[in-house]
Amino acid sequence: MSWEIIKQSLPMFQQGFVLTLYLSLVGIIGSAIVGIICSLVQYFKVPILDKILQVYIEISKNTPLLVQLFFLYYAFPAMGIKLSAQLCGIIGLIFLGGSYMAAGFSGGFNGVSKKQVESGKAIGLSNWQLARYVVFPQGFALSIPALAANIIFLIKETSIFTVIAIPELTNTALDLIGLYYNSNEYLFVLVVAYAIILIPLSIILTLLERRVRYGTFGN
């Protein structure tokens, strides 16, 4: 392994690093918004809309991101819809992440115990009040571990963007390997770069999980 080669490649990796972070951030925020909408619609069982969103969730959950991206990037232009690679990446990530986030939120809402719901009903809370004061606050706390796991998952999924040539981290490494053939060095930098992003997140995830498991509410 040559440190010289690593040093020379760092500026390129830096660009990839920033792009990975940027695309992840946009994708995560978008996914969270889609997820909240889906889980609210399902919680309140909004007629028709909940069936439509259920179809979306099943499709999103049960197909690979790579195939979703191919569809957006290669098949859509044949239908006359041309999108830039980055936009395809973001749309694909949100399409995928939305259903994962929805499952995370819904899991939390459904995890609130039946007894809590009953004792809310017993003091006369309406459906909306029950959701607002009992189910959502408790359910959100319960869903935090799943949401954090989704965040890590989505960041890792951005590595698949390389198949439509978005110059994020993985694509940068593969390009460099193609050009200079120093696979050891570039793969090393690549793994380190992901570790820098994901290890702190993974530690936070473990801590959160512990906190939620011991039922720490308030304070």
Partner: peptide, 9 residues
């Protein structure tokens, strides 16, 4: 109720 069921939040 038997299990009090105060809202923990």
């Amino acid at each position: 109720f038997q299990s009090y069921d105060l809202f923990p939040n």
